[in-house]
Amino acid sequence: MNSRRDFLQKVSLGLGVTALSGLPAAASDFAKIPMADKPLRVAMMGLGGYANIVAKGMQECKLAKITGVISGTPSKVDTWKQKYGIPDGNVYNYDTVNQLKNNPDIDLVYVTTPNSLHHKHVLQIAAAGKHVICEKPVADNAKQAREMIAACEKAGVRFYIGYRLHFEPHTREVIRMREAGEFGKIMHVNNFMGFKIGDPTQWRLKKELAGGGAMMDVGVYALNGARYSTGEEPVWVTAQESKTDPVKFKDVDETITFQLGFPSGIIANCGCTYNFNHGERLHLMGDKGWAEMVPAFGYGPIRGNTHLGPINQPDVNHQAYQMDGIADCILNNKPDPNVTGHEGLKDMIVVDAVYESIRKGGAKIFINK
């Protein structure tokens, strides 16, 4: 297994309080969306593995279309131009991003560059006057996330984070059940996400590009899952790090376990790793019922059960659902779903606290919003 992309595809067998705000009531509603006469025109920034997955998924979109690319690798650009019919005038490199402001054929830029470049690139896109989607984690820390939000608000552009699971039907059904009180009072959450990382020279193992290790990359899934499983925001964190390969993981964290305390007294036990497979799960327990999803966070199919039986929801293309959902909000001026920069900031506030707890030997860190 050579990459996070391979892991997410293979282990999953293929491609906020109101986390559903602004979305259709049922997953089937997306299937009823008609093709747009004028779709949201999207440029991909960074043409690595995940950009290719997004682009492939967007071929199923009804409301969004790839019309441009931003890359520093000419050989990749040539491939994308051929595959997606991108004209020369919609091709940019990292030094010409500011010229986007003069291009009416691009409405939004999807940033899939390495984590530590997100801050710089989102600021560039905002300055060019384009809407932006940024992959998670939104930034290296909460301070950067706040700056990105402020820049987008000043520019009058919409700022989203690639929380595709907020559009995924099984996940949305669990949130619906929780909000409807079908689990009763939530008592406990137990989430884990991880995989055995491959190539030791890849950017995810270099702190200057990744910002951190497993916590930044896959720990955000467990963390965000705890937040939408409870409908609450954590008020304290404790965290521990373990390393079995100090050479490979000399710059970044290998395995982190962390505990989240919520205002109602709920405790979430969470973890993430770069050193083993087969740990992906979400499990919430209430005083009237429970839900478990295994796999819970990969590209699909997601599978789950509750005390009432299997979660019978359709298997969908996550990237297409995400892009059509966001495009619907922009094109039709609908309220934003819970995947804006503010949602990303909430996760980064907790991630900062996780790392602070580790630096302080596992101390309880109270979270300041």
Rank of each mutant, 00 (worst) to 15 (best):
L209E: 10
V235K: 01
K207S: 12
M348N: 05
G48N: 06
L8P: 01
V91H: 00
G341K: 07
V97H: 10
R178D: 15
P114H: 02
N141M: 03
N277D: 15
Y92R: 00
I186S: 07
H131K: 14
G225H: 06
K243F: 12
Y92G: 06
D88W: 07
D140C: 11
D95H: 11
M193F: 14
G72S: 08
Q99C: 12
A51W: 09
F183G: 02
L223R: 07
N93T: 03
L20Q: 02
G198I: 04
Y274I: 04
N312M: 02
I186H: 05
A51I: 11
P39N: 02
G72L: 02
Y160G: 06
D140Q: 12
T238A: 05
M35G: 09
Y110R: 04
D287I: 15
K346V: 11
V354D: 04
D251G: 01
G72Y: 00
S75E: 13
E356K: 13
G213E: 10
A210S: 10
I266D: 06
Y110Q: 08
I53F: 08
K369M: 15
I326P: 08
V235I: 14
K65W: 07
H119F: 02
N191E: 05
H307G: 02
L13N: 05
V91P: 03
D37V: 14
N103F: 00
M293H: 05
G22T: 14
V122N: 04
G68Y: 03
I66K: 01
G68N: 01
